[in-house]
């Protein structure tokens, strides 16, 4: 087992508008990207389990080869800045992804 951290340059989360948070995993190179793709590490099921959300709240999972990246987007539990909301920019919701192993 190897930590995902060995394969990535970037793991980040950020608002994609006030109602969604998008997560980017940008891999170190083509080989690292392919390895993670072959292991099918990033998929809807993993996302729902890791974040405790319903499948319909995962808006998309998209490969972006020009940056050897995988990104996924989820519906925010609350819109950015709403009462009870916790992360206005959505920039600290990536953290559980750092625990993934390949």
């Amino acid at each position: 087992m190897a930590s995902i951290r060995e394969y990535v340059d970037v793991i980040r989360s950020k608002n994609a508008g006030p109602y969604a948070i998008t997560f980017d995993l940008i891999f170190k190179d083509e080989a690292a990207y392919r390895k993670v793709k072959e292991a099918d590490l990033i998929n809807k099921k993993m996302i729902t389990k890791l974040y405790g959300i319903k499948a319909e709240d995962v808006i998309s999972v998209i490969d972006f080869k020009p940056a050897h990246a995988i990104k996924f987007t989820i519906r925010r539990p609350l819109s950015a800045g709403a009462v009870g909301e916790r992360d206005v920019y959505g920039a600290q919701q990536h953290a559980p992804l750092l625990t993934l192993e390949l």
Binding site: K14, A16, A20, S60, A69, K71
Partner: peptide, 12 residues
Amino acid sequence: AAHTLYEKADPY
């Protein structure tokens, strides 16, 4: 290319 991903749900 990485910036193309930034802050948006669908980079295409």
